[in-house]
Design a protein around this nucleic acid. Structure first.
Length: 464
RNA sequence: GGUGAUGUGGCAGAGCGGUUAUGCGUGAGCCUGCAAAGCUUAUCUAAAGGGGUUCGACUCCCCUCGUCACCUCCA
C-alpha cells in the first residue's frame, strides 16, 4: 500500500514488519467534537479497517489532550473542575465515536496520565541542551534542531520575520516553544524545574514513543496540525531519540462550511451529535470518505442528501441478496465480483483513494440492483456476492440494518397476507398491513412478481 | 508578505499523454390499485486563461489569474 507522506511530499510504500502502528492526534476535550473531527477519525478508522480486513494487524493509538488552557478556562467559566469537564467530553467523544461505528483504538492515552513520561523526555532534552529553563518554563531550543521546518516546509528565517507571536523576552528565540509552563494554580504537577503544566506538543511525543516506539509507521492528524504541532513533535522526538520519528505523515483535509474552515468565531461549527441526529452514521461516513482524504470537503445539505440516496441503494442491494431464495439458473456475475474486489482494493492501496474505491463499490451495487430489478438474483449469486458486499461494508464501516431469521419469517407472513388482500383488491386493508410493516421499520419493494422488503435506517433529514 | 495546496461538466468528484470515470441532478420510460423504493434510457459538445513540448494534452513544462489552508489555539 502506498500513502502520501507530507514530509517527503511523495507517495511512500507502507512498510512494516509485524504490524502497522498508527498514532493519531486526538482532540482537546473542552467541548463537543465536530464534523471535522469526525472526518479525521473516520478516515483513520477506515484505513485501519482496510488493513485489518486484509489480515494486517494494526495498533492504533489516539490521545486525549485533557490538560490545556482552553479546558482550564472553560471549566472556570462553568464553575467546574478541569478534570470534570474533560471527563465529560471524553464521554461524549466515545458516544459520538460509537454511533459513528468507529472501532475502538488500541488505547486512548490521556495527557494527564503521562506527566512522568513527559518530564523524563524533557529532562533528556535539557541534558542534550535541546531545551533550556527560563523564567516562565522549559523551552525547546529550535536552533539546536537544524532540520526544523522540514515537515511544514518553512524556513526558520521566514518564521522569525513573519512571526505574529508576542515576543517573550525570556525566550532565546521567538520560535522556541514551551515544553513545560510554570504555574502555581491547579491543575499542576511537580517537576524538577518547578510546578507547572506540560506544553501541548510534548504529550504526543511522549505518548507516541511510549506506546509505539521510536519509529512507527504512520503519524496522522488533520492538516491544520502540520504546523506547529507536528513540526514540533518531530523536533522533540528526533532530538530525544536521535532517530527518524514517524515513517509516514498522513494528514486529513479540513471540512469547510461554504468554503470556509469551521471555527468558533464564525459560529459555523457543526457538532457530530447534531449531524448524526439528522443524517445518521452511514450517511456521515459516506460523506466523509466521498473525496480523497487529503482534500477539503465542503459541508452542504445537498452532498449529504446525495449520500443518503447512495445509502438507500446499498440497503436495497443488501436485502436483495439477503432475501434471495430463487434457485433457477441466472447470470454468472463471479467475474464482476472478483474484479470489483480487486479494483476496490487497488484503489485503497493507492494512497487510500476512497473516492475511487466507492465508485467501484457503487458500480457493483448498481449491477446487482439492476439484476434484482429483473428478478434475476438467485441463491448462487447471493452466496457469491454477499461476502464481497459485506467485506466492503466492513471496510467502509457501514452498517445496514439487519434482521434475524425469525423476523424474516414473520415479515413474509405479513407480506403474504397483504398480497392476498391485494389480489382481492382490498386495498385499504392491504395498506393497513403495509403501515403495520412500516412501523417495524420495514419498507416494501414491489417487483413484478414478488414483493421484496428491506429494513431501512430511519433518517430524520429525509422527511423534510 | 512567506509556505503549501488547489482550479475538471448544473453539482460532487477520480483516473489517465490518445479509450464512457463514477455518483447526484435533469428529461423520458418501466414497475404499480396508490405510494415508496428500485431499475432502464437519454442528456449536458467538462477541463480558469495564455503560451509551449508532442503526431496527439484535461493529463507534462512555463507564465498569468482565482480559491483555500498554514504562518497564534485548531482535526
Amino acid at each position: 500500500m502506498k500513502i502520501s507522506d507530507t514530509l517527503t511530499n511523495q507517495k511512500k510504500e507502507l512498510e512494516f514488519s509485524d504490524k502497522v502502528r498508527i498514532y493519531l492526534c486526538g482532540v482537546t476535550v473542552y467541548d463537543q467534537s465536530h464534523i471535522g473531527h469526525a472526518r479525521t477519525i473516520i478516515v483513520f478508522d477506515t484505513l485501519r479497517r482496510f488493513l485489518e480486513a486484509n489480515d494486517i494487524p494494526v495498533e492504533l493509538i489516539q490521545n486525549f489532550t485533557d490538560v490545556d488552557d482552553k479546558i482550564i478556562n472553560r471549566a472556570k467559566e462553568q464553575g467546574e473542575s478541569a478534570s470534570g469537564l474533560s471527563t465529560k467530553y471524553i464521554q461524549t467523544y466515545f458516544e459520538d465515536s460509537d454511533r459513528l461505528n468507529i472501532k475502538r483504538a488500541t488505547n486512548y492515552p490521556k495527557a494527564t496520565e503521562h506527566i512522568k513520561d513527559m518530564i523524563n523526555l524533557i529532562e533528556e532534552l535539557v541534558t542534550k541542551e535541546s531545551a533550556y529553563v527560563s523564567k516562565n518554563g522549559v523551552y525547546f531550543r529550535v536552533s539546536k534542531f537544524s532540520e526544523y521546518g522540514k515537515l511544514s516546509k518553512k524556513k526558520t528565517e521566514d518564521l522569525e520575520s513573519g512571526s505574529r507571536v508576542e515576543i517573550d523576552e525570556s525566550k532565546e528565540s521567538p520560535l522556541d516553544f514551551a515544553l513545560w509552563k510554570f504555574s502555581d494554580t491547579q491543575p499542576n504537577w511537580e517537576s524538577p524545574w518547578g510546578n507547572g503544566r506540560p506544553g501541548w506538543h510534548i504529550e504526543c511525543s511522549a505518548m507516541s514513543i511510549k506506546y509505539l516506539g521510536k519509529n512507527f509507521e504512520i503519524h496522522g492528524g488533520g492538516r491544520d496540525l502540520i504546523f506547529p504541532h507536528h513540526e514540533n513533535e518531530i523536533a522533540q522526538s528526533e532530538s530525544f531519540t536521535s532517530e527518524q520519528f514517524a515513517k509516514i505523515w498522513m494528514h486529513a483535509g479540513m471540512i469547510t462550511i461554504n468554503g470556509e474552515k469551521m471555527s468558533k468565531s464564525i459560529g459555523n461549527v457543526k457538532s457530530i451529535n447534531h449531524v448524526l441526529e439528522s443524517w445518521g452514521p452511514n450517511v456521515v461516513r459516506l460523506f466523509c470518505i466521498s473525496g480523497h482524504y487529503s482534500k477539503p470537503i465542503d459541508y452542504t445539505e445537498d452532498l449529504l442528501k446525495e449520500n443518503l440516496i447512495r445509502l438507500r441503494q446499498i440497503e436495497t442491494c443488501y436485502y436483495e441478496l439477503r432475501l434471495a431464495d430463487k434457485t433457477e439458473e441466472s447470470d454468472d456475475i463471479s467475474s464482476l465480483l472478483k474484479e470489483s474486489r480487486e479494483k476496490f482494493d487497488a484503489a485503497l492501496n493507492d494512497d487510500f483513494n476512497t473516492s475511487l474505491g466507492l465508485s467501484v463499490f457503487f458500480n457493483m451495487v448498481k449491477t446487482i440492483n439492476s439484476l434484482a430489478s429483473d428478478e434475476k438474483i438467485n441463491k448462487t449469486i447471493s452466496e457469491q456476492a454477499l461476502p464481497v458486499l459485506e467485506y466492503m461494508l466492513e471496510v467502509l464501516g457501514l452498517k445496514v440494518q439487519t434482521v434475524s431469521d425469525d423476523e424474516i419469517k414473520s415479515i413474509f407472513e405479513l407480506i403474504n397476507k397483504r398480497e392476498k388482500l391485494r389480489d382481492e383488491k382490498k386495498f385499504e386493508e392491504a395498506d393497513k398491513i403495509r403501515d403495520q410493516i412500516a412501523s417495524l421499520g420495514i419498507s416494501l419493494i414491489d417487483h413484478k412478481n414478488k414483493t421484496l422488503w428491506m429494513k431501512k435506517e430511519a433518517i430524520k433529514a429525509e422527511k423534510q
